[in-house]
């Protein structure tokens, strides 16, 4: 008798979440594990968003900083460059300059930046704060108002500050990114708390907290995988959100992505090493279920897109 490959069927399904108004993208919608299109329906491709910042990327390693020489002095030219020259399907604007330990830009300045960037691009915008619990509550509220009607993803809402951010997304009709600290039970709890405020669970994206290859990637991978299994096999409606991998900021922070070959001879040439670090981190988390990936280096993005082409 011929061998028949066993096919799993799942009781749950990941929600579809759409961003943008002119050009849009949709993530999620699958009723199978990542790329298991032989078992069910995988209607949407993972989306890669290019990361830009409200302030110049002084803290980025040279490998990835130099790619944006001449455009990264201003978030508008930077975002336009990513859209027009690099064919970005989405832009992730990180308002890192609002952090009190950085430039400490005000919420009003952040809102003005959001407006300028939105006016310059037509792909969907993801708006990220600086992950400072108190500051993000004013920054993201101002940003959500400035982006009213533009159907953005806004985050990240944490257990400590989700209420004001959820309210701002409700009032201005945005999608919300909820982040918990690498703990599946707390991730579920945060989703429950957010939906109890009247926020539609189908407008939610989960960030279980990213980590880079060699620096806890396996933890993020495992949490993402378990979230997806709860969504699909247990039909847990609180866990059926698409997931975000905030790759670039973690991958480019580690030593292996910035140390020269003289310091790290075993790692080989620096430039391809950094690109590979970001690509491998993104690829692994995509296999665990991340549908939206925020990345920095165009070569990493290119490599991941090729990977997706082969898997879809």
């Amino acid at each position: 008798m011929a061998f028949t490959a066993p096919n799993e069927t799942y009781s749950g399904k990941v929600y579809q979440v759409e961003a943008g108004t002119e050009k849009t993208f949709v993530i999620g919608g699958e009723n199978v594990l990542p790329f298991h299109s032989f078992e069910g329906n995988v209607p949407n491709r993972p989306v890669i968003a290019y990361e830009v910042q409200d302030v110049p990327p002084e803290d980025w390693p040279d490998t990835v900083k130099k790619v944006y020489d001449g455009v990264s002095g201003n978030p508008v030219t930077w975002a336009k460059h990513c859209q027009d020259k690099l064919n970005a399907k989405a832009i992730a604007l990180r308002l890192i300059g609002t952090h009190p330990d950085r430039e400490n830009r005000s919420a009003e300045e952040a809102a003005a930046t959001v407006k300028e960037v939105l006016a310059a691009i037509n792909v969907p915008l993801i708006i990220l704060g600086s992950n400072h619990i108190e500051k993000d509550t004013s920054v993201l509220v101002a940003a959500a108002e400035a982006a009213k009607g533009k159907n953005c993803f806004i985050g990240k809402a944490l257990e400590e500050n989700y209420k004001t951010i959820v309210a701002a997304c409700l009032a201005n009709n945005h999608k919300l990114i909820a982040m918990s600290q690498l703990d599946i039970n707390l991730s579920k709890q945060l989703n429950i708390l957010i939906t109890q405020m009247g926020f539609d669970k189908e407008k939610l994206v989960t960030d279980p907290m990213c980590s880079a290859l060699g620096y806890g990637l396996d933890y993020t991978y495992s949490v993402m995988e378990r979230i997806r299994l709860a969504a699909l096999t247990q039909n847990d409606v609180t866990m059926q959100t698409p997931m975000l991998g905030d790759i670039g900021m973690y991958a480019w922070k580690v030593k292996e992505a910035s140390a020269p070959e003289s310091e790290l001879p075993i790692g080989g040439s620096l430039e391809p090493r950094g690109i590979a670090w970001e690509t491998v981190t993104a690829g692994a988390l995509m296999m665990a279920g991340a549908e939206l990936l925020i990345m920095r280096h165009p070569e990493s993005v290119k490599a991941l897109e090729k990977f997706i082409d082969e898997l879809m």
Binding site: I184, N185, L186, K188, Q189, N191, I192, L193, Q196, R226, A230, Q234, D236, V237, T238, M239
Partner: peptide, 12 residues
């Protein structure tokens, strides 16, 4: 183990 634990599991 049929439902994933969260502090608010009774409210779901």
């Amino acid at each position: 183990g049929r439902t994933l634990y969260a502090h608010s599991y009774l409210q779901m």
